[in-house]
Nucleic acid binder design. Structure first.
Lengths: 165, 165
DNA sequence: CTCAACATGTAACTCGTTACATGATTGA
DNA sequence: TCAATCATGTAACGAGTTACATGTTGAG
């Protein structure tokens, strides 16, 4: 697969959990090739370079999966902003949550499209389906949250003195 | 509030959505002070330095909230690994998902504790409660996903030829 | 012929983590 | 007195983003 292709596929498949721009991928492929984890194939039409995983590369992935703990650090800017809802005008706060709702619904549409494709046949596809399900469920949760939050904000608007504008 | 205190509170409150180590906080406070967004107060007992937000600082936060779009980039290493379930032995795959389940359940316990505290009284507390709800719901979704995934893996184990060990 | 998509790279910068380094105060 | 906790910093490194920079191929 070429760097360009990797870059596109990243967006399309694992893109919901991780992303990488081409400026990160090209140098990394060179590095991986130097380490013998991938090897370059025949150059294609317009300067296209393809790489294939080597046995050592596959081992390295498996070693990573087996020997290292996942880093569970979360970094969710939209959620962070929710902590500061009280610094916004009631309208801005509502807009923020509405934006979250829209974003989540849109993301959900995309994921559902992927899920509807064809039923997974290979082990790799079955894994992808399981990973996709995680996205589906957490995104549904975000949709549910945003609807709940909107109601709650509207409820509060009736009673409260609003913070500074 | 001092840098040390900020560092601890980060962990305890917004920690579920964002984190920062002390090595990031101390230099940042110096920078913010130089920009007039916070100001240093009287030094305390053991070299303790306290800072307070200035009006300019509050404005800057509000400008950030109002003028910039949240970055919705997700980076979820545990979810990424799920894409590679098929490269693991069936046991390792199951363990991975079980670890996710354990982590999610533990995180959920912590969030529930926070949610049970006292009912929010101030606008800031109400915002925190709404933010917390997001954590609660997405974490519940992760628990649900992990249980579903375990069942699915066990189902498959009965039928499939397993990939390389 | 021209535009979109294919295709690859480099450089500067920012953000965050890990490790290094030090010292004061308090309670057991 | 000794350990934990409070308290603050710096330096090196790695990961990732943005912007810069260039060239090819195919379709309309």
């Amino acid at each position: 697969m070429s760097g360009y292709e990797l870059s596109s596929r990243f967006e399309a498949s694992v893109g919901s959990t991780w992303s990488a721009g081409h400026s990160q991928i090209y140098p990394e492929l060179v590095r991986l090739a130097a380490d013998g984890l991938v090897e370059a194939g025949e150059p294609g039409p317009r300067g296209r370079k393809t790489y294939a995983v080597t046995a050592a590369g596959r081992d390295a992935v498996q070693a990573w999966l087996a020997d290292t703990e996942p880093d569970r650090t979360v970094r969710d800017e939209a959620a962070l902003r929710t902590f500061f809802l009280w610094l916004m005008t009631p309208e801005a706060a509502r807009d923020h949550v509405q934006d979250e709702l829209d974003a989540a619904e849109q993301s959900l549409d995309g994921l559902r499209l992927l899920a509807a494709r064809r039923r997974p046949a290979t082990p790799a596809e079955r894994s992808q389906r399981i990973a996709l399900e995680a996205g589906l469920r957490t995104t549904q949760a975000r949709v549910g949250w945003a609807r709940w939050a909107l109601e709650r904000l509207d409820d509060q608007a009736g009673r409260d003195d609003h913070p500074p504008g």
